[in-house]
């Protein structure tokens, strides 16, 4: 039903186009809501302001020491880092095969780099699945979308790992599955929790701007 040419080309491009269009609509929808106006004069410490606040807030993702919730659970934080690096690597792998290495194998060092990152992300995916099912706190807040998104990505990592060699002779099905799942992923993303990265800049910007103006961000901590 699908051949490699099709899944690497029209299917992949189509999925990408759908995702882009839906993203644009989604952003338009979000910006249609008016932003609340802050009239208060700055409070708090004089060494910070709105600008410092939102820069700190955006940079929060790379500062595990900044929040108690990451500082005290570094294992979870590193899972987060590996998992998201895995997503980035798998997307890059998809693009690399579609646009640069259509008919040539991926160079060995690059392939190994992809496999190490994506393989680690797969392991993290499995740990996350176990946590989502095993922890009563996480289970209580998990919707079918949460479960499906995690399963989808973890399975995608598995096939990305297998497809990283880009070797048709060694099993075209691996590549086919990787690309078909990737396309499903691209189309599904804007409708699911996976689209959180689209909102991240907004939520952290507004929180950081407000708490910077109020002298709360960057958080000062003394032990």
């Amino acid at each position: 039903m699908f051949d490699l040419e099709f899944v690497r080309g029209p299917l992949h491009d189509g999925a990408l186009a759908v995702m882009t269009i839906v993203y644009i609509i989604r952003l338009y929808w979000l910006t249609r809501f008016m932003a609340g106006k802050e009239r208060q004069a700055p409070t708090g410490r004089g060494d910070t302001n709105s600008r410092k606040g939102f820069i700190y807030s955006w940079g929060n993702v790379g500062m595990p020491w900044a929040m108690e919730s990451t500082r005290t659970k570094l294992f979870l934080y590193f899972q987060f880092v590996i998992f998201h690096l895995g997503v980035t690597a798998a997307i890059l792998l998809m693009f690399s095969i579609s646009f640069y290495f259509k008919d040539t194998p991926i160079p060995l060092p690059l392939m190994l780099a992809f496999r190490i990152i994506i393989g680690a992300a797969f392991v993290v995916g499995v740990i996350r699945i176990i946590r989502r099912i095993g922890s009563k706190y996480i289970r209580a807040i998990s919707s079918p979308d949460d479960h499906f998104s995690l399963w989808l990505l973890t399975a995608w990592f598995l096939f990305a790992y297998m497809a990283a060699a880009n070797n048709v002779a060694n099993g075209e099905w691996k590549l086919l599955t990787f690309f078909i799942m990737g396309s499903v992923f691209l189309v599904y993303v804007p409708f699911s929790k996976i689209s959180h990265y689209l909102y991240y800049p907004f939520t952290r910007y507004y929180l950081g701007k407000s708490l910077g103006r109020r002298g709360v961000f960057p958080i000062k901590r003394f032990r």
Binding site: G36, M67, L76, Y199, L207
Partner: peptide
């Protein structure tokens, strides 16, 4: 609903942190 509230309502990934 304003943009800040909508952002907070749609952004949760249920990570449990």
């Amino acid at each position: 609903l304003n943009r800040q509230i909508v952002g907070s309502l749609v952004a949760c990934v249920h990570c449990g942190n």
